[in-house]
Design a protein around this nucleic acid. Structure first.
Length: 277
DNA sequence: AAAGATCACAACCGCATCGTT
DNA sequence: AAACGATGCGGTTGTGATCTT
């Protein structure tokens, strides 16, 4: 249940709100962070006039408001990667998410828990108890489920957006994060390239007018952001689409090494610093 | 058409870790 | 070295939407 008094004034404003975020709260948080960055999350909550904990603000930003998040459903390739990485890394969702630009640990975790794990348990159950009561031959059931696993696409439903992040100016990550910007020509391949030695932390100006190009590699956390200035986040998503990247077949032997190679493609985009126009 | 069941996702909670003083 | 506060992470729960009967 969402109170409709978000951000309301008055003496009781000190009382912390919980539950779903209202569009107004989202807007306040988004505006605050894009204009001023983050010193500490508790101060963000306070300065944005939100009756939320810093923790809650951080979570909302990381999982929902961050402009570099992908909006489209998880693709088959991404699903394969999740399966592969979960197999090699276990439930280290943040590590898995770090290898999947635009996806959050929470999103991946939810995806795993609600779909993949469920399907895998079906496979195990089917093969373990002799096929179940519905008469499906176990092998066929397993195969069917595996096939489903392999082909499953996310349901078509679009995520609901309380306000249009896409209409907002290109935002920048909070100041305290390691920040690297990558600008990649539309349609260009992203190749494994020698790591740039240039890493430029960007200051937040909130105006989206910056055009600095920086490429950083080997960092555990990496933000890419598009500084085209027209606020087109779809372009952003296109440029950095997971499916545009070439990577070794998931699930192949030596997954970690292979994923690292692939990861390096992600994090070491073509240098050259061409801009996006 | 209505009620109940199921599903997907957002958010919270508690603990661990890290950085600062 | 210890204490404290902030942040990060993974597990779990709550809520709204959708599907089924």
């Amino acid at each position: 249940m969402v109170e409709k008094t978000a951000g309301g004034h008055g003496a009781e404003a000190a009382k912390e709100r919980k539950g779903l975020w209202s569009p107004e709260e989202d807007e306040r948080l988004y505006a605050r962070i894009t204009r001023h960055g983050v010193s500490t999350w508790s101060s963000v909550a306070q300065l944005a006039g939100l009756r939320r904990s810093g923790k809650s603000c951080r979570l909302r930003w990381m999982n929902y408001l961050r402009p570099d998040l992908k909006k489209e459903p998880i693709s088959k390739r991404e699903q394969d990667t999740i399966v592969s990485l979960q197999k090699s890394l276990g439930n280290r969702w943040s590590v898995i998410a770090a290898r999947m630009p635009g996806r959050t640990d929470n999103e991946i975790k939810n995806y795993w828990n609600s779909r993949i794990r469920k399907r895998q348990s079906v496979v195990l159950t089917s093969s373990g108890d002799g096929g179940g009561a519905n008469g499906d031959p176990p092998a066929a059931a397993a195969a069917e489920t595996q096939h489903e696993l392999a082909l499953a696409e996310s349901p078509a439903g679009e995520k609901k957006e309380p306000f249009s992040a896409a209409a907002a100016p290109p935002a920048v990550p909070p100041a305290r994060f390691p920040v690297f910007a990558c600008q990649i020509p539309a349609g260009s391949a992203i190749n494994a390239a020698p790591q740039s030695t240039t890493t430029t932390a960007h200051e937040h100006n909130g105006a989206g007018s910056e055009s600095e190009v920086s490429v950083g590699g080997g960092e555990e956390h990496c933000y890419y952001y598009y500084r085209g200035g027209d606020g087109d986040m779809d372009m952003f998503g296109h440029l950095l689409s997971f499916d545009d990247l070439e990577y070794p077949a998931a699930g192949a032997a030596g997954g970690d090494l292979l994923m690292d190679a692939w990861e390096s493609q992600l994090y070491c985009a073509n240098s050259g610093g061409s801009s996006v126009d």
